[in-house]
Design a protein around this nucleic acid. Sequence first.
RNA 1: AGGCGCGUAGCUCAGUGGGAGAGCGCUACCUUGACGCGGUAGAGGUCAGGGGUUCAAUACCCCUCGCGCCUACCA
Length: 876
Amino acid sequence: MDKVYDPHTVERKWYSFWNEKNLFRADSQSGNPPFCIVIPPPNVTGVLHMGHALNNTLQDISTRFKRMAGFNALWLPGTDHAGIATQNVVERELQKEALTPEMLGRDGFTERVWEWKERSGGLIIEQLKRLGCSCDWSRERFTMDKGLSRAVREVFVKLYEEGLIYRGDYIINWCPRCKTALSDLEVEHEDTKGHLYHIRYPLADEQGYLIVATTRPETLLGDTAVAVNPGDERYGRFVGKHVILPIVDKKIPVIGDSYVDTSFGTGVLKVTPAHDLNDFEIGKRHKLDVVKVIDDDGRMNERALHYEGMDRFECRTKIIEELQAKGLFERIEDYPMGVGRCYRCKTVVEPSLSLQWFVSMKRLAEPAIEAVREHRVRIVPEMWEKVYFEWMENIKDWCISRQIWWGHRIPVWYCDHCGKMYVSREEPKTCQECGGSLRQETDVLDTWFSSGLWPFSTLGWPDKTDDLDAFYPTSVLITGFDILFFWVARMIMMGLHFMNDVPFRDVYIHALVRDAEGKKMSKSKGNVIDPLLVMDQYGTDAFRFTLAMLAAQGRDVLLSEERIEGGRNFVNKIWNASRLTFALLENIGPVEGAEQSSFLPDKWIRSRCRKVAREVADAIDTYRYSDAAHQLYNFIWHEFCDWYLELIKPVLYGKVSGADRAATGRVLQETFRDIVTLLHPFMPFVTEELYQRMSDKKSASVMIAPFPEGNDSEADERSEGEMDVIFGVIDAIRNIRGEMAVAPNQRVDVLIRAERERALIEEYAYFIKELAKIEKMAFTETKPERSAIGIYKDVEIFVPITDTEVIHRELARIEKELTKIQGEVTRIGKKLQNRDFREKAPEEVIRKEEAAHGELLSRQEKLIGNRTRLEGILGR
RNA sequence: AGGCGCGUAGCUCAGUGGGAGAGCGCUACCUUGACGCGGUAGAGGUCAGGGGUUCAAUACCCCUCGCGCCUACCA
């Protein structure tokens, strides 16, 4: 084995090994309890980024753990067709060939997208495999495949029949770049520095004008009224009169509507029902005309007079110029405002009146709110429940139609002749009313419409399948908070509505990955760390383990190369520990028939290992991945490597007479196997490599090795307590050596004064001497004069001092510690004298404080004793 | 505007109603027969500030300041 672990040589081989052995596969007929996760399907256009890496690492940890713990584990993978994103990608590709979608036509274009999908769409799946994901690839799904498309149609038709889907004219968010409607969630809000323009609208029947304040002067061309608050003393009298709409020179009414805020702007509101949600509502109340002046491509249309064909933002400037020229411009002031942008292409979204399809949400939301309130779906961390409720309780109808070609085409047909509409699972041939020919609706559905069905459509719905029986509801959904509304909430609503049961029992919401400065990683900021490069450079296992360590609940994950380096060092540490372990075991030969060891370090490490196994299992089960990883890190590095391996070296090298080498070898072997097994969910590749090298492996793969049973009742508290004494004594001696600047390789003599612990220390004297680098160790009844003192509980350790300069150093050290102790003694002493404390604090706390107080006093006394002796030597 | 979250060692972060922790960084020493991607020891904190509840607060409540995020139809 190499001195340094090389991930590249081992990682490749094991993934195909698992695959060939069919270890990823779940069985719907299995008698084992089910555990199921459906993957948040990445976009087919996607390449693996840090968010995916974290998300899928956590899913894999849970899945691998549950599989090893005896569950019938299914991690169901797949990808999302990502309507707008994918269409954009293919459009860009066409551009290179000087083609447009229009030139290919709808069928030609979608064919191109499928081609593209077959060619490049599998990239992210391959990257997930590199990450080590143990998905059941035989069940991989795609939101546009036959089965899922059928599920989409079924849901659309059912909801329509139930009156929960409707079509109508409403103000929606329009992206002039993508040329499609967007749902409210697909609009990103951004604070920008805007302006408030004050414009004069001349009165029609008398002198003067009303001054209107607006952030969007270009929409003036579509104004059909001016509104004031009817109770406004300044303007009330104008209600019912008219003003002349500037530039257009058209008479429009002044209306009274309580929506108008008298304290905002001038108190006069221009009303453009076709380009503003509130104006639209006002327009409905007052039956106003609706004049659309901006086209689907963001340019002014024929209703915009001489501005026809001009870009909406250029028009804004020109309109102001024209108003100034006409003396109708009052003034301009800075005004911070929110601008909506398309989440795909960042173009400023245009609120626009449009005929679209909607899902009526209220009735669907109510049971979904209940389900979370009653914890039939448990959201972890709980804090996200509030966010969920907040949104669900104020939910608005969902615009689901998109004016693009890539996606599930809405299953609605219109008769060319009589206009009758058919909503149907199967394509109707001709109009039943008049026999006329039918044309299918050209719009497709929002991608999230099909994603919302994912937990049951992937398991075979609408058919009744074994998979649905076995795995629905799924166990847990693991995802980031950024798609809580987009996806999680909708799955809960759809699952309840169509399956009559929640889609998953738990939702674990993990943090976002950010850079070391806490900034969101983005290509434009140039602060992205590419997970694939990281895996190349540091190894997949190191990367995964680092992510798990950083994935504390409810916090952002700040990733830096230094952290990953730490992960790599840990993997390397394990690698080297295994080199030693294998060498030691080979050295002593077979250990299978060995006796149960009575060697204290053996009993101690077994006890610790069982506890850690238990804690790791608990932590993964409750999504505390970071806790689990830290437990393992500390146990393996600081207990197994730093202490245990060092303690057993002399035994296994045959330097301790009377030791049962085989018994200790057996414990080493068992413990090492446990460690590798416990680590496997976190670092699948090295652990498989090491497992396969073991002479005592229990399964064909560590992937299906039983997860070590942790059991607190088997904890060996007595052995742990005794080891603490040994550790305490060694630490005390090392501390003195360090403080007195004794070189690490220089052996020292020590005298030990102990009563109760004497037998134990004597028994393990050899090990103490080895680990603390002691030449001669002896016991004493009296306190030697010329020595430095180390204390562990009642045990006093003396290291003789020869040099006067060292005496001064020791005195300084004692002084420093005494100061610290004095503070503590005073603090606890006060507490113990407090009558309220003695009366009201729990018995246990009082005893604990008394014990601490006593120990401090005894330590203080010992230190003072030594100080007095040393000062005596110096003749003070 | 409302909501949520966060301010703990130089940096990044855990943590808990009763003796302040980790990783990295830093200092000193060390080729101890697995590992320098290592070992041993060490320095470093009024747990943002103020008030309250409590025998006891870094932790629970309120306020202030600073930072981040989400939701929102005030033009």
